[in-house]
Each structure stands twice: as C-alpha cells, then as structure tokens.
Simulated scan of single mutants.
Amino acid sequence: MLKKLQFNFSSLFSLLLLVVCLWAISNELREYNYHDLFLTLAKIPKQRLSGSIFLTALGYLVMVGYDLLGFSYIGRSLSWTKVAFTNFISSTFSNTIGFALLTGSAVRYRFYSSWGISAFAIAQVIAFANFTFWLGMFAVAGIVFLTNPLKVPSQLHLPFLTVRPVGILFLLLVGVYLLASLFIKQPIRVRLQEFRFPSLRISLTQIIVSSCDWILAAAVLYILLPPNIALSYLDFLGIYLLAMFAGVVSNVPGGLGVFETVILLLLSYRASAVSILGSMLAYRGVYYFLPLLLAGGMLGFYALRHSTKTLSNKSNN
C-alpha cells in the first residue's frame, strides 16, 4: 500500500513539475510580443543562431558536472544518464524560474530520492552544486575584473569606480578555498552539522567545470550581439558577469529586467538599444526558453511513462 502511494505521488509530482514548467514558459513569453520574438530570431543569421544553440547545449552538458562532482564528493555513485536527466531539468527550472534552492532542489530531491539516495546525501549534493556555481563565478570574474576592469555605471550606486576591487576580493575567496582544501583534512563542525573540504583535485575540477559554464553562457549572448558592435569577447565577458551577478543576487526569475538593465547601461554607447534588446531577446529564447521547453517535454514523457507503468501494474494485479 505504501509503495503504491509513493508511486502515485511520484507521478503526481512529475505532472506538477510539468504544469510549473508550462507556467514558466508562458510567463517568460508574456514579457514580449510574440511577433517581435519571431521577427528578432528571423533577422539573426542562421549560422550565429545555430552556433548559439550549440553553445547552449554544450553549456547544459557541462552543468551535469556539478552533480557528478557532488556525488564524487560524498562518495556515492549513480548512473550518468540519471544524473544528467535530473541535472538538466533542475538547471532549466533554476535558471528560468529562479529561487534555485526551492525549484532546483525540489527537482533533485524528487528524482534522486526515487533512485535510493538518502535525503542527507541529496542535501550535500545540492549544497555542493550551488557552491560550485558561485566558485566558478568568483574565479572567472576575479580574473576578468582584475586584468580587464570595466567602469561601474553610476546608476548602480556602487562604492567604487571600477570592478577591480571586486575581482581582488573574488580571487582571495577562491584562494582561501583552495588552501583550505589543501591543508584542512579534518571535518569542521558548524552547530550540529559537519563540513568537510573536498580534495584539492575535486576543488580544482569544481573551478574548471563552473568556469566553463559561465564562459559558455556568455558566449551564447556574445554570438547573438549585433555584428557591427566593436567589442572583444573578453570585454563582453566582464560586462556579462557583472550583469549576471546583479541578476542572480536580485533573485528575480532568470534575472529578468536586472540583467538587461546592466547590459544596456554598459553597451548603449556601442549600439542602439533596440538592437541590443533584440539580441538579449534571442538569448533568452535560446538559453532559457528552448531548454525549458525540452525539459517540459521530458517531464511529460516521464509522467506518461510512469502512469502507463502504474496502469500496467494494476491490470496485472
């Protein structure tokens, strides 16, 4: 009886995720005019659009490394396909809907628990993945902000003229983390919980995986920018990281509004606001909308498959 209830709840939760997914898609499109969306995409050269889709697919593939490293960190194993399936759906929900600790975490708990992973182990993987996400941001932004500092727009009301101080702070945090991974071998107790630094090998891999994620995400938008804009990828990477950092900290779903505002403030003198907004519209369509649409289809297929299994089991009994 308990097993049947658990199985029914599993199917119900998958359907609930699908509904949330469809809501997120409609909410994403509500911000824009459908005609403008397709018109903007139609104006982008097919080669650039194909390149952005390829980079997006590569980026989401890299994100699977977050969870794979998390399982390696806790000393557990799970098949690559199950980890990739869960990570993809979790990442699309976290990126588009926001509130990663609620959306992405709920998805991970739903699927990993059904495959025999304990709640405590899942919590460790979630914490590890979220920390890895920020670790890569600190590493890439730290290097870019330090070596190629951009001026901070006065509209952001930050207490410094360039982002170089932020870059120094970010690199110090990364350095402290690596030193701790190298020298601190004993677990650290925080209240009733114990925290153990990963090995230096895992820590370095965290930085590499997350850095690749950020670099690829920026490349998706960069390749969609107006072709006449005179801007190197390195210069744009700093702008993208600052805008994305502001969007993530705001916790607005997908950084919607905050991200665009910072990009426009820093690029408005290089190209028209209309063309830049068109590129960002295409970017949201490729990097957020398409993966979410695919995740919705995967959830629908998963729910249908399990519903069919449930009916088959009932008929056999």
Results as ranks from 00 to 15, higher is better:
Gly51Arg: 01
Met63Arg: 08
Leu101Asn: 08
Asn95Pro: 02
Leu58Arg: 04
Gln47Ser: 13
Ala57Glu: 03
Leu55Gly: 07
Thr96Asp: 06
Gly51Ser: 11
Leu29Arg: 01
Ser14Phe: 06
Asn95Ser: 08
Thr81Glu: 14
Leu15Gly: 11
Val19Phe: 12
Val62Asn: 05
Asn87Ala: 12
Ala42Asp: 15
Lys82Pro: 01
Ala24Leu: 05
Tyr32Gln: 10
Gly59Asn: 08
Leu18Thr: 11
Tyr60Pro: 02
Glu31Asn: 08
Ala24Arg: 11
Phe9Trp: 06
Arg76Thr: 14
Trp80Tyr: 10
Val64Thr: 12
Leu101Pro: 00
Ile53Phe: 07
Asn27Tyr: 03
Asn8Cys: 07
Tyr66Val: 03
Leu18Gln: 11
Asn87Trp: 02
Leu61Gly: 15
Ser50Phe: 11
Ile44Ser: 05
Pro45Asn: 13
Gly51Val: 12
Leu49Asn: 12
Arg76Ala: 11
Leu39Tyr: 11
Gly98Glu: 01
Leu39Cys: 11
Asn33Lys: 11
Ala42Ile: 13
Val20Leu: 12
Leu16Pro: 02
Asn95Lys: 00
Leu15Glu: 05
Phe13Trp: 11
Cys21Phe: 12
Val19Trp: 07
Leu49Ala: 09
Leu22Trp: 09
Phe54Leu: 14
Leu12Ala: 15
Thr86Gln: 04
Arg30Gly: 14
Leu69Gly: 00
Arg76Pro: 04
Val19Pro: 05
Ile44Ala: 10
Asn95Tyr: 04
Tyr73Lys: 09
Gln47His: 09
Gly65Pro: 00
Glu31Tyr: 13
Val62Met: 04
Phe85Tyr: 12
Lys46Tyr: 15
Leu101Ala: 13
Asn8Asp: 08
Leu41Thr: 13
Phe85Asn: 05
Asn8Gln: 10
Asn27Cys: 05
Gly51Phe: 07
Ala24Met: 02
Leu18Lys: 03
Glu28Trp: 07
Ala24Gly: 14
Phe54Val: 14
Val19Gly: 07
Leu68Cys: 07
Leu16Asn: 13
Asn27Gly: 10
Asp67Phe: 00
Phe71Pro: 02
Leu18Pro: 04
Glu31Lys: 03
His35Val: 14
Val19Ala: 15
Leu61Thr: 11
Asn27Lys: 01
Asp36Tyr: 09
Ala42Gln: 10
Val83Lys: 05
Ser94Thr: 05
Phe38His: 08
Ile89Glu: 02
Cys21Ala: 12
Ser52Trp: 03
Thr40Ser: 15
Glu28Asp: 05
Tyr60His: 09
Ser72Leu: 15
Tyr66Ile: 04
Phe9Glu: 12
Phe13Arg: 10
